[in-house]
Amino acid sequence: MEIATSQPSLVKASLSRTSLIAEIRAFYTIIWREWLHFVRYPTWVIAFIIWPILFPAVYIFSSFALAGPGGAGIPRFLQVAGTENFLGYIVVGTTVWMWANTLLWNVGFALRGEQMRGTLESNWMTPTSRFLFLVGTGPVHAATMLMFFIFTVIEFRIFFNLTFEANLLSLLIVFLAAIPALYGLGFTFASLVITAREANTFVFLVRGIVMIFCGITYPISVMPAWMQTVAQWLPPTLIIRAARAAALNRAPLSVVAPDVLLLLAHGAFWLTIGYLTFSQIERRARLKGALGQY
């Protein structure tokens, strides 16, 4: 009788019956692990110094060439883009693209990385919600991207004397509103990657779509009508448009609000899709026993 009465309390306190607090603790630990992973490989410092300026450079110098020695191409750019500041215009677009690109490689490959290292099965054996292992990769990536943005601003100030006419509050709101949409896409992608296994081609495909359709270096009005329609449905297009308004034209909240609301709607949609895809893939992997295969 004694055993029967004491057993339930033991079971309750054990990890096999997790509480909300235990899930929060596990989530915190996953985020901390991701952070340690990030700082343990110091080459990120080199990447943070080089890439904010190196990737946009190819488009920036191309835009200098297109503008011409006497600025003959600038009136046309002003006409289609609504600004003469093509340098800032390109920097904002390419930086958002870099955000999406690193998201695909980091968050998108989070589960695949665990699978390759052989830790995915053992992690999923714990009574922690499996989706948390995926979601836990998001905050660290978002924090590192914030650092990346700061490096971008500093480097362009130094090397190109570029100043941003930014409304910081609007910019921050756009950044925060972009997170659910982008990371929802990333979670969906990560879930598909563990089934597809060889995912490099998928990354090239997705980032290629963003690069072509979302107007990272040009206004989408120069594309054919059908491409503009596709672009309107892609979250990076909204992020780039709102970020350009906030970073280059001091747009107040009221101006970026329509894009922010749309981004939040995209966020709700993509997080749901991400969760549903993950659940389906997880169930399929359990049924097939294919989790450890790569």
Partner: peptide, 30 residues
């Protein structure tokens, strides 16, 4: 295909600086 993916945005960027398909500004350099 990858170089083509890189070329597409370059093409549209060229369009944003060109009039009637002619990149007059570019001609000043090249």
């Amino acid at each position: 295909l990858q170089p083509l993916v890189w070329l597409a945005p370059v093409y549209f960027m060229g369009q944003a600086f060109s009039v009637n398909g002619k990149a007059e500004g570019f001609a000043g350099y090249a």
